[in-house]
Design a protein around this nucleic acid. Sequence first.
DNA 1: GTTAGCACTCGGGGGGCTCGAGTGCTAAAC
DNA 2: GTTTAGCACTCGAGCCCCCCGAGTGCTAAC
Lengths: 345, 345
Amino acid sequence: MRHLSERQETLLGLVVHEYVENAQPVGSERLVDQYSLEISSATVRNEMSALTEAGLLRQPHTSAGRVPTEEGYRYFVRQLIGETELPADEKRLISHQFHQARGDVAEWVQLAASVLAQHSRVASLVTAPRPEKTFFKQVELISTQGRQVLMVIVLRGGEVRQQMLTLAEEIPADRLDEWAGQITRTCAGMDASGMAAQAGRWTGLAIDVIRLVGEVMARADAVSSGEIHRDGLTNVLAQPEFADSESARHALVLLEERSFLEEVLAKALSPSIGGVQVVIGGEGAWEELKDCSMILARYGSAEHATGALGVLGPIRMSYGRTISAVRYVAGLMSDLVVESFTGSS
Amino acid sequence: MRHLSERQETLLGLVVHEYVENAQPVGSERLVDQYSLEISSATVRNEMSALTEAGLLRQPHTSAGRVPTEEGYRYFVRQLIGETELPADEKRLISHQFHQARGDVAEWVQLAASVLAQHSRVASLVTAPRPEKTFFKQVELISTQGRQVLMVIVLRGGEVRQQMLTLAEEIPADRLDEWAGQITRTCAGMDASGMAAQAGRWTGLAIDVIRLVGEVMARADAVSSGEIHRDGLTNVLAQPEFADSESARHALVLLEERSFLEEVLAKALSPSIGGVQVVIGGEGAWEELKDCSMILARYGSAEHATGALGVLGPIRMSYGRTISAVRYVAGLMSDLVVESFTGSS
DNA sequence: GTTAGCACTCGGGGGGCTCGAGTGCTAAAC
DNA sequence: GTTTAGCACTCGAGCCCCCCGAGTGCTAAC
């Protein structure tokens, strides 16, 4: 399977392209017509035969056209795609949309999902950016009703968490402020374990507050990602491979199953930020997405916060287009994260 | 169509029940067999004929069994369902799950969606509880990096919003605290328009802060609901009426189209809390959900906060079961909202 | 009012047919 | 040696047709 001739590579590329477009096995004559090839259909047949031999194409049945195998798609993506870029006008449009949404993280995430879904025509996933590890910055204690107190915990990077706390006895607001100020001054910059260690050194109300803050931070550190924002679910239903409800259901289950998505995101994105990961047909590791591909990227920056985004669609997907869309959106999101952390307006 | 005999009502009920179970037109003989009726199939045929006349049943084609019409379902729900209750053990299970999740609003919402999806076997929707109108309670100004300031806005009821603000010049943290304290003391309890009116009376930094707070509050008042949490999307794909991908897509589009859901939730739930609204087949008002039904309820309490929840599924739905599930979950959510506001632990 | 009997209807499913796109092979041409 | 025309062969998709049986409405008897 090593060493495809240049012509074979070209033909593989054309088969992939044609199949992605039409969702139908592509035959030799068709190919010659469609792309005005200089060679005859018989030659194409010979080459196709070789590609089939090499495991890059297959025939759904004897005497039907050829279809790329998973291996064929992988070869295509690895060797033939090059560095496709989104058209400049699409880039401009997307970047414009992102500039509109500046300011609100939740909005970015939603927008990224929507943009990906629209430009890739498959289902998209985006998680909000989160720091690798949380550090305490500030706490506010706000009395609500009787002995109920709302704790507002601010983490480094500006993430805000809230948590209710019930006091043993009512405490006036100014005393609460005082406590909060003391705790903030003393504990600023600590991580979850640091907070846990602190608790013992305090008395009264502060013990509970610090313990709870520590718990909230530990919980935040434990989950690998927040909510996973989805969009474009209906796109995958439009694909002919999901025409029968059984396979459609199967694909949708993947997209609903949070734990599965988390696992995939975690495993596929362990490496580094910037690169785009392409998982074609489960790669042997995930039986569940046998007929699906995912294109994933991590965004953000390691010292601030990172998130993940990507798409999930049928194996028969426009990889060039989709990969560049994922890469571009990941880049924009990275910029936004860095911007919002370093405060350059 | 007025005045069905008791026997006719019984038969209508049985047809609905049988059709909901099997998704196939039900014939007279089948009905007699299945439910060991004391009357002959010919009699059943006569009654069915009358029900068809009355517009409550219809035949998919001449010489097929009967299927309830939309009107038939409505009659069934209005007159025949009674006050079905979930079995006690299911109630106990659900209530137990909710007690586990106490404390975090986002968790309730997610749990409610999951429970509804599981017990109704269709797709569920839940919005987070929100107050009718927001009132300012407190603001904190937290310096992050250089001239970037994170505003944390606490609203009555404990809802927390955050908003970035870029200063004209750097201001030390203790000055920020001072400003925040002043604004909080002066403006506590105001609504969005009150805040807007305030802005003019201040100077410097405070103008921007108050203006932004006002905007955030106005924005919060404008959207009728926050994010709509969904679950059980795959359930609807399992229904035979959505076997072909076209209708499945159609249903999924409804569930993805935020604006549509908001409209439906708003219109259907204008009345009051507590009651369960059943929208069968669009009721003429929504062409889009021609083949779907929604069962919706508002939860919470008017003076604190309210949200909406419900399910969307095919018209052929187990109304008794689903209505009681929606009612029960709405009740639990209402309790949680009230509890969390009044602070009774 | 109820029911047995009966002729009639029509959709679904299975079998068989054709059609055509596509293949692999061979032998001739370049 | 590679390319290509020619050709026999394959096999699934689509179509037609037919049969079957569940179900109906009607009529006449109970």
